[in-house]
């Protein structure tokens, strides 16, 4: 009985979260009938989704279903074959080089591997976007920002280390710090917990939530780690074979009629 009540409470919370996410804020990313093929392989078949301001949207799906391709279209790394990919009201595919650069400054992208620049120290990695994109010149100001950001991710001690000296979890944290130092309005996480142990995965997931609170970002988190999805998601989209097959809060999807959707939560 008590368990049923708890489940119902969780379900209600989940529904409330979904509703609040749907109603809160403006739409910052909108995909409509997005299609993308590589040669004869159709990766995205018909993708429709919206991300609202302040929302944490998790995209769940097996490897190779097209999750990363979808977020790469959002930052103009890949151009869709058909459909609309609209970010902050701008159609990404039609943007000029300068407009795309301006748009990218508002979007943070955390790569699966962290993608730290191997030839630079952690300090230089974080300073790189500040000097190259923000064109900041004052070294003291840059150092203050770098140190502040490293403190946020709990890795101030690693400031003068090379990426090769860092563990996988540390690389992801530094990657996150390097992305957030630009104060993006949208964060795109490409499998942030893949390859990490459960404890570090949980730490990264919690860090995503903390950073979202602190920097008020809207996020899309691509993952197949259900623990990460449960911690971070306001809303979950389940992707399979190039289309979204389900949408809802975590507890809704856990009890979905679709066997494939349920299988993610087992």
């Amino acid at each position: 009985m008590a368990n049923n009540e708890m489940e119902a409470a969780i379900e209600n919370t989940g529904k409330a979260q979904t509703t609040s996410a749907k109603t809160a804020g403006e739409v910052v990313i909108r995909l409509e009938h997005l299609k993308k093929s590589f040669g004869s392989k159709e990766v995205l078949k018909d993708i429709n989704m919206e991300l609202r301001e302040g929302e944490n949207l998790v995209v769940l799906g097996r490897s190779g279903t097209g999750k990363s391709v979808a977020i790469k279209c959002m930052v103009g790394m890949l151009a869709q074959d058909e459909g609309i990919c609209n970010v902050f009201g701008q159609e990404v595919k039609t943007l000029s080089e300068n407009d795309l650069k301006s748009l990218r400054e508002k979007i943070g992208f955390l790569f699966q591997s962290g993608a730290l620049y191997d030839s630079m120290t952690v300090r230089d990695n974080l300073a790189f976007p500040l000097t190259r994109v923000r064109k900041m010149k004052d070294n003291d100001e840059i150092n203050t920002l770098v140190e502040e950001m490293l403190e946020n991710v709990g890795l101030l001690d690693a400031i003068d280390k090379m990426p090769a000296d860092l563990s996988g979890g540390m690389r992801k944290r530094i990657g996150l710090a390097r992305t957030l130092i630009m104060k993006p309005q949208i964060m795109l996480y490409d499998e942030p917990t893949t390859g990490l142990d459960p404890i570090t995965s949980k730490e990264i997931s919690e860090l995503i939530l903390t950073m979202r609170k602190k920097y008020k970002t809207s996020s899309i988190i691509i993952t197949h780690d259900i623990a990460c999805a449960k911690i971070t998601a306001d809303r979950i989209l389940v992707m399979n074979d190039g289309i979204f097959i389900a949408e809802g809060a975590c507890n809704e999807l856990e009890h979905s009629d679709d066997e494939l959707v349920r299988s993610f939560f087992k």
Binding site: V75, M77, K101, S102, R104, E105, I107, F109, F111, Q112, S113, A115, L116, Y117, D118, F128, P129, R132, V133, G175, R178, T179, M182
Partner: peptide
């Protein structure tokens, strides 16, 4: 190796 480990993509996406 920078391309394979997505470092070039990271640079591009950051606006650099």
């Amino acid at each position: 190796s920078m391309k394979v480990t997505e470092q070039i993509d990271a640079m591009e996406v950051s606006g650099a």
